[in-house]
């Protein structure tokens, strides 16, 4: 049994982790740079964070993003769980191939195509573009990711648990709520987190489906970044990275504790 790192493995792990984390680390360090020139170190300062919080445009974009993320992740998780259940359990044989195709296709579909097609749909049904259309778009791809996460747990779920619940007096619906749901709950939480993160992260689909007055944070960042690197964006990125890292670490600790219990 391997109990130690071989030098080759240690080297590739070190280089690999450096490759993955150095760019992010540099970004974080330079967010505390006094200088306006992002590549020249001018001393430690937190002034760009102050600037950030005084920037109305960023704040309102953040608020839009948060609302889109919360609503779309929640609906996407609900629909995704139902979809996973239909795929794995309910044996919807007719149209099952088409259904599973529609679930898996958005996972590999280039975002430009998904974005374009949704936009053209909204236009052709005469729907005003704005925060609602972004939410609808994010629900659509979010539910596909959510359903993949939930169905991988459902596949491993012993179907006789549900039968046992029925045998002990549950209707199929009661069996779902008293047995299936608690058992797959961790996967549902993971699915929500994934849908939420993807929504927060999305630039391309939001750009296609948004309208006047609905600018998400990635759209705002993108328009700034096209003009060049700015310390304010570094500060914003650092905050986002911080939030996400804390969230992921907390989630994994909670998962570990649940596993121990």
């Amino acid at each position: 049994m391997t109990n130690r790192f071989s030098w080759f493995n240690a080297t590739s792990l070190t280089l690999g982790m450096a490759f993955l984390y150095l760019p992010i680390l540099i970004l974080v360090i330079y967010s505390f740079n006094e200088s306006k020139l992002v590549t020249v170190w001018g001393g430690f300062s937190t002034k760009w964070y102050g600037e950030l919080f005084r920037n109305e445009a960023f704040l309102s974009a953040a608020w839009v993003t948060l609302r889109v993320g919360l609503i779309s992740a929640t609906v996407a998780t609900l629909l995704g769980t139902l979809a996973a259940y239909a795929l794995v359990r309910a044996g919807m044989l007719k149209g099952r191939t088409l259904f599973s195709g529609m679930i898996y296709a958005p996972l590999v579909m280039p975002e430009v195509i998904t974005g374009l097609s949704l936009l053209l749909l909204f236009i052709s049904i005469g729907m005003d573009r704005g925060i609602t259309t972004i939410i609808l778009a994010h629900i659509t791809f979010g539910m596909c990711f959510a359903s993949v996460v939930v169905s991988s747990r459902l596949v491993a779920f012993d179907a006789s648990l549900e039968e046992a619940a029925c045998d002990l007096g549950c209707t199929p619906v009661q069996a779902f709520f008293s047995v299936t749901l608690p058992v797959i709950a961790p996967a549902i939480v993971a699915a929500w987190l994934l849908a939420f993160t993807l929504s927060l992260d999305d630039l391309v689909i939001a750009s296609f489906t948004s309208g006047p007055g609905a600018t998400t944070l990635p759209m705002k960042i993108y328009s700034q970044v096209r003009l060049g690197v700015t310390p304010e964006i570094n500060a914003l990125s650092t905050l986002l990275i911080g939030f996400v890292s804390i969230g992921v670490i907390l989630a994994s600790l909670a998962g570990k504790r649940a596993a121990v219990e």
């Binding site: 984390y21 992010i24 330079y30 992002v38 590549t39 996400v244």
Partner: peptide, 27 residues
Amino acid sequence: MLVILPFWTSFLIRVYAWIGILKTEGL
């Protein structure tokens, strides 16, 4: 987890991080 963690952070930000590194006057 260390391999997965960057995946959870914004794609846009991770691409943006390289601009400062790769620029002609970059790091």
